[in-house]
Amino acid sequence: MADVEFHDEIVDVPLEGDIDVPGAAKSDDELSTLDEPVKETILRDVKAVGNKFAHVLIPKQSRVLLKEWDLWGPLVLCTFLAIMLQGSTDDLNMMGENDGGPQFAEVFVIYWLGASVVTLNIKLLGGNISFFQSVCVLGYCVCPLGLALIVCRVLLAVSSDSLGLFIARFISVIGGFAWSTFASTAFLADSQPAGRKILAMYPLFLFYFVISWLIISHTHS
């Protein structure tokens, strides 16, 4: 049979070489994650999330937050806010009610519902951005408000309730609010049609305002 002869010929010359597709990206780095240690994988993700937080804290025109979106940062921030804002159970027990549940759920709902409503509004106004990109940016931009919350908790823990304390908390929260709004607009500005920015800004402003108000109205340490 002719087949057998054909086989013999092939074995003599083994197949060798690379197949290069011009224009295709080299994906060697991503393929190699299979045999790398778990620690490296996790560290890389943590670094990416940290990098994004840094971008929010020092806002500059950058596409990192939009291009490589993830929801880890928002999830962490949301859980942090919800835990920190959790109402204490002591002062409400006289009415026989436990204030444990709603507070956490409320922050959670405000966070995700608010982000989706703002995103939906941006999409409806004709913004050129995908849903999760926007949710990612909005979520990460709560970071300054998270810092303001930490400052507030520290201030509340250090001294007792007074006017000076309230003013200090107020300033920190207002600072966080302005920072958050500024950062999110810096990232989302490109995706907005010109002349309509104020329309997209309003629900964003309302969203951060409600979160700031939750932080400042939280008085018991």
Binding site: P102, L113, V117, Y202, P203, L206, F209, S217
Partner: peptide, 27 residues
């Protein structure tokens, strides 16, 4: 936007009046 603002104001009112919801959240 007006309805969203009203929701935020209502939330503020509920909070300041110490309103509580048994099942679900204020928002």
């Amino acid at each position: 936007m007006v309805v969203l603002t009203l929701i935020a104001l209502l939330l503020y009112q509920m909070k300041s009046a110490d309103h509580r919801v048994e099942e679900g959240t204020l928002i």
